[in-house]
Each structure stands twice: as C-alpha cells, then as structure tokens.
Design a protein around this nucleic acid. Structure first.
Length: 581
DNA sequence: TCGCCTCACACGTTTGAACTGT
DNA sequence: AACAGTTCAAACGTGTGAGGCG
C-alpha cells in the first residue's frame, strides 16, 4: 500500500519534473545553494519551505585550493589492527569499531552551514558520493588523464548524519559536519564506509530531507533537496599522486602535522630511515621531476593536454539530459584536466585527449633521479610551474557504462549477489552502520545533469537501497532501504525520475559552488519518524561546535526489512554563487 | 618493468576517563 | 556533593616507504 503510494508520488513528481526540464536548469544566481523547487506543495507550507534552505560549504576556500590542484582522497582497506600502538606497548583493547582502523576520512572534511530551515521541522541530512563520470584516471605528466572506462560502481552508500532526524534549529545552530565519513576501496566493507574505486572521480552530495511528522513517508508534502559543491569533487587514490595535494594535506590537516615543514619533514624521514641527514622522499622528488617535466610537456602539448579556454563557462545539456561541460576558462582545473565536453563538442573528445596523451607518457611517473634531490623544497615551490588543476567535472555518460553491478545493502552485499539486493536484505538483518543504500547500476538510469557533474541520481540510492541501519536516523535509513522491486525503479517512469535528478553544480566554476534540487515528497518518513522512541534522540540537544557524527557505533539491530522504505528524489537545480561563511 | 595496491610504521591530534581543585 | 578544570593514556588519523601483485 505504502509502496504503491510512493510509486504514485514518484510518477507524479516525475511528470512535473519532466515538464520542467530544460527550463530550470539554468544556474541560480544566488551566492548560496538555493534549493530550486520542482514540486513544492503550495499554500500549505511555511515560509521555510525546503527550497528556501540554503547551504554553505564550510572552508570553501580550502576546498577550492584542493580543487584547483585536483583533489585526491585516500582510500584504503580496513580491518587491520594498529601495529604502531602495539609496538609502543599500548594496551590495545579492540572494540568492534576499533578493528577498523585503516579507512580514511575525507580531508578537507565535508562541513556545511545550513540556514533557511524551519526551526521546528525535522530534517534528515545525509550525504553520498557518486561517480562524477564514467572514466578511470591516471596521473600522468603531472595531470590527471583519462585512462579508460570506469570500473563497475561500488555499492552506493549513504552517510546519514547521526543527528538525523533533528529539527531545523538543531541543524542551523552550528556547522553540520560529516567529518567522520570514511572511504574505502574494500568492496566487501562491512562497516558501512563509502566504497569507492581507486583512480575514479567522485562527487559528494548533500541531501536534506524533510522528516517531520506532517511531511512523512507517503505524504506528498514531504520534500527534500540536494546540494552539490563542485569543489568537493575528488579522485580517489590509494596513494597520493600529486605532490601538491600531499603538501596541502600536510599543511592543513592537523593529523599530518608530523610531516609539516620541508626541512623538518625531510629530517623526519631521515630519522625514520636511521639517517642523520635530510632525505628527500622519492615521491617528493618524483613529483618535482614530474612537475618540471610536466611544465615542459605541457608547453609541448599545448592544445592537447592543457587548457582549452574556449570551454564553456556554464553547463549545458543535451536534450537527453546529458551534461556538456562545466569548465570555466578561469578555473585552473579546466586547463589540465581532460575535458569531456566543450560547448558544442561531443563527449568523445575526452577519449581523443587520452589518446593524445600517450604521446606524452614519457613524463608519467618516472622513477626519480637522485640528482633531483638536490632541489630544495623552497626552490621547488618557487620554480615549479603553477599547478594546473587537473580535476574537472566530467559529465557522466550513462550510456558508456554497461555493466555496473547492482548492490545489496551496504557493506555486506558486494559479492554476495547483484541485482535487486532484496535477497540480501532479507538475509541480513542488521548492518553495523548508520548509512547506506545501494547504488543502482548506471545503465538502469538516464542521468540528467543539471549543472555539469553527472552522477548517480540520489533517487537511485534510495530506490535501490537494500538496507540501511541507522540507530540515529531510522527515517533516513528507511528512505534508503526500500527494495527497488517495490519501487519499480527499473521501469520507464523511474528512469524519468532519474533524468530529473540532481546533478552537479554550477554554471560557472568561478561563480558557483553548488547546485541543489528539491523534491516534494519522500515517502516513508512518517513511519520512521513516528517511531523515534525506538531510537532515543535529543533532537534539540545542543551540539558541540563542529560536532562529529560518527558512522559508528554498530548498534542497531533493526531489521533491514523494517527499514525498508522508499524514497523519492526530485530534481531541480540552482547554480550557486557562494559567499564565504 | 611498471603502475597500483597493501601493509606496517612513527608521529601528532583527539578523546574521554580519572584525577584534582573549588 | 556537585561542578569545573586539568592531566594523561588510549584511540584515532595521517603520510610514508617497502614490498607484493598482476
């Protein structure tokens, strides 16, 4: 019954979104991420409608620094014990969560300032990380280049903010931090961390779901919005490729303080190696060499690997919803990262460049030369060519991916099956995480980008979620866990929904940081929120500044079936200009 | 040989329980 | 007794380099 209702809502919503397609994709002029509504109920909402919610990316300048250099995020496998602590003689007591020690957080961390919420309305905040395109990359010639087709997508997972659901006043009181979101490349990750493929480009997204009891699951009044900050896009790596990124991380991440200072850092390396003299790391030297070589190569390769100033400054879309490009002539990222599209140009251009890049592969990650070690860090920074930003938003070409694996519920499903995930859902009563929904294989959806970075539609996550266990946020769990079969997500109607789903941001890199989209109805919330007593929360409790929201603990034993609800995702977007703070 | 990945490591930061002072 | 502030060890997060693998 509920499912039918949800499907009906989706259909209705899709219809409206389709009617709107092509008319609302223009970037929103605001400097904030303004939710552009596509289907907001009229007359029965307060002024704080979901489309009025504004989200500002915290530390946007830092993000931009990384973005300009081509953000990389380390992904690792998990499950090892901490050898270093053991070696220090610490009495290591391993709790369940402490066994998971290797997965890495994102840095910069994903933190946002939210305004415009109804203080009394409850919202669920969650993030996901979706492929930004269908390419695999390699770092060559000090640039990121396309290295082929993307590997099948990892199980799509959601990170539900542990405070969810909470009132608008709660969210607006302070920064909302997704700092403890962790990344992994372990396809079988059982801890609920977000699974990514190495050397692939991803785009984090923020979703805000209205979860108050008057806008609950099945209600057409329930709304949500999606915010995307293009500067948070990154390429996942198992080890840093770009020395610039390494330096930025070291300089800005407190945990990496031990590596700060070129001389001190080198000395530390020396100590680690039992030497009394400074040692320049191989990576450092390599990067220096590549940097120098890349500079030359870049000149030699002008027009092939370097910037294309003519690339459009705003996203354009094909009739089918395919993004064109988001490159901004002023965005340094545009200059070194292969462009998949340019205004009026076709998508294959990307490949063309990749092919061209082969001619320059001599400069790819060559072994460092000892003589390069003589180059001081200071000299390196002063003489090295300005880093060209390798990270561009590449539109995702849904057609290009033909066989992404459907996933079951978060973490446990990766290799136990594929497709609906319903089986696993039934067989796996719990999950030690508070997030996650499965990502639908790309081919199942037509992805419409609104502002450039195309990716797996949010709805796909929800619609195909096999399970999510969130002791903190049953509603969010619920919305992400409804079996896709129930949702009929594979039918044409659903495809239409996905076409209308939110996409990457911005019409202009230089002026826009995020896009947002909204949808009016997200069925399934009422049922969960009305059972909050099962998950005691202090929805209005004050938060510590920049509070963390651990994806642990693995406490919930709520059955997956219990958590199975449907979510609907609507779409619209707003190109956004961002004012700091 | 090469690129990518895993693992172990040392070090710094964060956290929270235990302790101390008011 | 209650609360606030301090201390400190454990836990956690980090980049690095060696080595494995295909």
């Amino acid at each position: 019954m509920l499912q039918e209702k949800a499907s009906a809502v989706i259909d209705d919503h899709v219809t409206r979104i389709q009617a709107r397609d092509g008319t609302d994709s223009a970037p929103h002029p605001s400097h904030l991420a303004v939710a552009v509504t596509s289907n907001i109920p009229s007359g029965n909402e307060s002024d704080q409608n979901i489309e009025n919610i504004k989200v500002v990316l915290h530390e946007r300048e830092l993000w931009k620094k990384f973005h300009e250099a081509g953000t990389e995020m380390i992904i690792t496998k998990a499950g090892r014990k901490r050898g270093s602590d053991l070696s220090r003689g610490h009495a290591v007591v391993h709790s369940t969560s402490h066994h998971v020690i290797s997965n890495r957080r994102m840095f910069p961390s994903y933190k946002v300032k939210v305004t415009g919420m109804n203080p009394k309305t409850k919202y669920i905040l969650l993030t996901d990380i979706v492929p930004a395109d269908d390419h695999r990359y390699k770092f060559c010639d000090n640039k990121w280049m396309v290295a082929g087709k993307a590997e099948p997508a990892m199980p799509g997972r959601l990170y539900v903010h542990p405070d969810s659901p909470a009132t608008g006043s709660h969210w607006m009181r302070q920064l909302v931090s997704f700092q403890k979101l962790k990344l992994t490349n372990n396809h079988l990750d059982p801890f609920g961390h977000i699974i990514l493929n190495s050397m692939h480009k991803y785009q984090p997204r923020l979703h805000i779901v209205k979860a108050d009891e008057n806008n609950a699951f099945g209600s057409k009044n329930t709304a949500y919005c999606t915010h995307v900050f293009h500067e948070t896009a990154f390429i996942s790596v198992t080890s840093y490729q770009n020395h610039k990124i390494t330096q930025l991380k070291i300089e800005n991440n407190p945990f990496a303080k031990g590596f700060r200072g070129s001389e001190e850092g080198d000395l530390r390396v020396s100590r680690l190696q039992g030497k009394d003299y400074p040692v320049i790391s191989k990576n450092m030297v390599r990067q220096r060499l590549i940097s120098s070589h890349g500079h030359l190569a870049g000149k030699l390769g002008t027009g092939v690997l370097t910037g294309h100033p003519q690339v459009l400054s705003s996203y354009q879309y094909t009739d089918t919803g395919a993004p064109l490009s988001n490159s901004d002539p002023q965005d340094p990222l545009s200059s070194s990262f292969p462009q998949s599209r340019e205004p009026g140009l076709l998508y294959h251009r990307f490949k063309h460049r990749a092919d061209n890049a082969r001619h320059l592969e001599l400069g790819c990650k060559r072994p460092y030369l000892e003589t390069s070690a003589a180059v001081s860090e200071e000299h390196y920074y002063r003489s090295a060519p300005a880093y060209e930003s390798p990270l561009l938003s590449h539109p995702y070409c849904a057609d290009a991916i033909s066989s992404r694996e459907a996933c079951m519920y978060g973490g446990m499903e990766a290799e136990t099956g594929s497709g609906t995930g319903e089986v696993d859902e039934l067989s796996s009563p719990s999950l030690n995480c508070n997030m996650w929904a499965s990502m639908q294989p790309y081919p199942r959806y037509s992805v419409q980008t609104v502002e450039g970075v195309a990716y797996q539609p949010f709805a796909a996550h929800f619609a195909n979620a096999a399970s999510v266990v969130s002791p903190h946020c049953p509603a969010a769990v619920a919305m992400a866990t409804r079996p896709q079969a129930d949702l009929g997500v594979y039918n044409p109607t659903t495809t239409a929904v996905q076409r209308a789903l939110p996409v990457a941001p911005q019409a202009s890199h230089s002026s826009s940081s995020s896009s947002s989209s909204t949808s009016p109805t997200i069925p399934g919330l009422r049922d969960r929120t009305s059972h909050q007593s099962l998950y005691p929360r202090k929805s209005g409790s004050p938060l510590r500044p920049q509070r963390d929201f651990s994806i642990y603990p693995p406490q919930s034993s709520m059955s997956i079936r219990e958590a199975s609800y449907q979510y609907q995702m609507g779409l619209s977007s707003a190109g956004t200009h961002w004012g700091d703070g």
